[in-house]
Design a protein around this nucleic acid. Sequence first.
DNA 1: GGTTAGCACTCGATGGCGATGAGTGCTAAC
DNA 2: GTTAGCACTCATCGCCATCGAGTGCTAACC
Lengths: 344, 344
Amino acid sequence: MLTDRQRLILNAIVDDYIRSAEPVGSRSISKRGDVGYSPATIRNEMADLEELGFLEQPHTSAGRIPSHKGYRYYVDHLTSSFSLNPEELHMMKSFFAEKLNVMEQMIQHAAGILSQMTNYTSILLGPEVFHTSLRHFQLLPLNEGQAVAIIVTSTGQVENKIVSIPQGVSVSELEQVVNLLNEKLVNVPLYKLKTRLYTELGAEMQRHIAHYEELMKVLDIALENEPDHRDVYLSGTTNMLNQPEFKDVDKVRDIFELLEQTPALMKLMAPAPGEHGVQVRIGTENTHEAISNCSLITATYSIDGKAVGSIGILGPTRMEYARVIGILNVLSHDLTKLLSHWYK
Amino acid sequence: MLTDRQRLILNAIVDDYIRSAEPVGSRSISKRGDVGYSPATIRNEMADLEELGFLEQPHTSAGRIPSHKGYRYYVDHLTSSFSLNPEELHMMKSFFAEKLNVMEQMIQHAAGILSQMTNYTSILLGPEVFHTSLRHFQLLPLNEGQAVAIIVTSTGQVENKIVSIPQGVSVSELEQVVNLLNEKLVNVPLYKLKTRLYTELGAEMQRHIAHYEELMKVLDIALENEPDHRDVYLSGTTNMLNQPEFKDVDKVRDIFELLEQTPALMKLMAPAPGEHGVQVRIGTENTHEAISNCSLITATYSIDGKAVGSIGILGPTRMEYARVIGILNVLSHDLTKLLSHWYK
DNA sequence: GGTTAGCACTCGATGGCGATGAGTGCTAAC
DNA sequence: GTTAGCACTCATCGCCATCGAGTGCTAACC
């Protein structure tokens, strides 16, 4: 579709614009060294590239900036696979060496590292509860009438919620129920828990337990796994404010509002079905209007070959694509390895 | 210190400025109706008030704006105790009616309500781990070599972390240790846990348990209660962007950066020792430079008469003090009631 | 024929300038 | 003690000329 020279020039323009955030003129491209043509020649090519929709002109007599289509082409034809420099590698390595003991902390920490390395905003989606199974169930009386239900998942996540205990239910009864549950339901995937509760335990409980119906209700609540409740971790949101394109408060407001809305973020971060690896969504390719001037680069991490969460970087469309893609690649890979090892 | 008329005028100026965010002139005060003096008289008083340090002039021939000292005086002499309007009362009531079962969710929700009602940024500090005691301790094997340590506190909070189990320690040994711990350490305040572990359990464990030393190390890690780890909940950070004083990105950047730093926020939100009730810190009265143009209003909530956490509102110094103070009063009171009831 | 030098042209950015008007401080009258 | 009147200050706004980066086009060059 494009000649080699056009590709070369387009690449140079995108690179320059990513660095400077200023419209790029023909002269500056000519002076770069890697494009050995005079400004006039480059101007001609630029005019062609604009006509083809890869470049835009903010106004006559300004330089050119890449259009969304231009960025898309740039990303799709990225050649130089980015490799981390020694310091960055060290950062990553020391992160995985730290062996954070709680998954939450680990993910939050990963988000911090990501935003720090890229100077963009990082968004991490915690492991999905659907693909994990029950490792242990516990019901601890808090005071009369209330108890903490604790669910430990196969990924080491601990979810807890407080439930009301109906009057008349004794502690020994509770213990009996908990034991039964652990016996029968361990290793059952979380999303199947409630069905199994009724199909497998119903009969047995009815035989042994006095307050069968009331307790079923309690368990029903305790095992409720809200499919919407996945943890979203953010870091480096302020980096957004350092981008010259967002020096106007009106432009950031919508973005920040979006970042406060967990469900919307989850939707944005959800990988396209079937996609593995790094995905780049440029400008209006994103489904949310607030970030139509942003690019979102995401990658997934997996446990047992199954994608359970995603990591992402949000920045202006003028983004260091190669770098960010490289970093996400490494991190998603390492995260997968770490989790798999952990999960065994 | 001030005459009645000066007080009246100062009040009017602060009120006006809170509403308009524009320097207030003598004429507009005169026309308000509640100050029955001519612009000239008011000008004279304004000059005096400026000399006394209660007002400032952005430049000659602009109106006056309150200084930090002016706000302080205004707050200290607030007369009209603000009362919530029916809708707001309804909002509050429905919040407490919702009976969220996990403390985390409840606090996050409270933060949302607060920011929504005030149009400022709300900051909530979760219940402090220091004043709570151990209700239950649990050690659940995850796989060989690792286990989840779960600590349930008297306030219903569940903390968990993953620890490594030394080789050669059997499951029955672990159970023995856990039983011993629950027997001896339940109801011990968290911050005393580690001391007690050594003083009370050391001897007994040494007698009964084979891998005494290794296990002590494990418990030491498991019971580590990081005093820094308190949960901070934010809501409505974007409201900051709607304030005209922060239309310049440079002014918000520092604030947003501060809001990302949990430890710094905790320090800011910590109540002055011995203080109960609502506290107002205006401008530079705050210890952090980033919010020297902001006011932070905080209140504490308690369990059993002991302050365990705080709720706060961050906004520009030009803040609706009366309103915010009123709302915080109500919320902190209700929160205390709810928690006390919950905790029994 | 592709490439380049030269040149007129465009248009946003910058800075100086006067008009405008809100608001003050001061003085003198009430 | 209060107020009307008036000269003065100074930020803001719109206007205009200037400046310069960058373009498009044409003609010369290899």
